[in-house]
Design a protein around this nucleic acid. Structure first.
Lengths: 157, 157
DNA sequence: TTTATAGTTGACCAAATTAGTTGGTTATTG
DNA sequence: CAATAACCAACTAATTTGGTCAACTATAAA
């Protein structure tokens, strides 16, 4: 089981898309600026998200990414699966050949844990997250900050 | 959140102790043989388990390790915490300063997930695992195999 | 039609972590 | 004293993470 920044970044970026992608596509540069995630790293993540049909892309000026379907039809578990191979807690990847072709002593425990985690993350959609009060507050803060940044770079010129 | 072989090995070894440590202390060599875990790696893990008061040691011939208390008082979460630092799913370790000193967009989600995982693993004791039918079957298989191995090494001489 | 924007791909890299190994030293028992 | 087994520290190989960089291709606006 691995849940690192890779999976966390992917979910954060997708949530950013859900928040800002209503009218026009959102560029990775925008997401990078708002969420403090390296642009080139985002490119890698979105390549996987696109391959898994979670986002669609629009090239050229004014382009960017948008969700491939409604935020109520995209679940956190799907996003993590897309970039992270698997959220499996077993060492054998569920194939039950952990100890020289046979099941190891704790195999069932890790299976149960995997089910637990996957079940939890499968219930939470992007829309669920968007509805949350804390998420709305943080998003507002980020918008304020990025607009400040924009004005700043204008006055800099 | 990291759950790798380190945590899995630790739980497996502790379960082995719970299964075989009723009368006499169990040597790491025995556990290594039964569970296919490198002896020197086990030494490192048990140093941490001992520091966290989950096992006590007996030196010298006939020595080994035993559980520091009953298997019904040792929970999987404690074992993983002992060797793995934390089972936290957040990037900030719960300190909520994920984005330049402020909370990141998905912080609360990872907190909820951490609670979920920790809650699950905190409910499962070593005794719970020992009682499971599958665990008993696998343990029986392992005992048979290791006795076979012992006879084999005798006939080899 | 040029040009800027933005996605796409692949090669590469440094740091951290994992999963060990090697080579000892103590302590205990027979 | 010899064998056993915990204890300890330093080192290492492989893998993963979290990126960077360069060279594309597609598209829309000027």
């Amino acid at each position: 089981m691995r849940l690192t920044t890779k999976g966390r970044y992917a979910v954060t970026a997708m949530l950013d898309l859900a928040l800002h992608g209503a009218e026009r596509p959102v560029s990775l540069a925008d997401i990078s600026g708002r969420q403090d995630i390296s642009l080139s790293y985002l490119e890698q993540l979105f390549a996987k998200l696109r391959r898994n049909n979670l986002v669609s892309s629009v090239r050229g000026p004014g382009g960017g990414y948008r969700l491939s379907r409604g935020g109520d039809e995209i679940y956190v578990a799907q996003i993590i699966d897309a970039v992270n191979e698997t959220v499996d807690a077993t060492g054998c990847g569920g194939s039950a050949d952990c100890q020289q072709g046979e099941v190891c002593l704790t195999h069932h425990l890790w299976c149960d844990l995997s089910d637990q985690i996957h079940g939890f993350l499968s219930q939470i959609s992007l829309s669920n997250l968007v509805e949350r009060r804390e998420v709305q507050n943080i998003a507002a803060r980020q918008t304020a900050r990025s607009q400040q940044g924009a004005t700043l770079s204008l006055t800099e010129v």
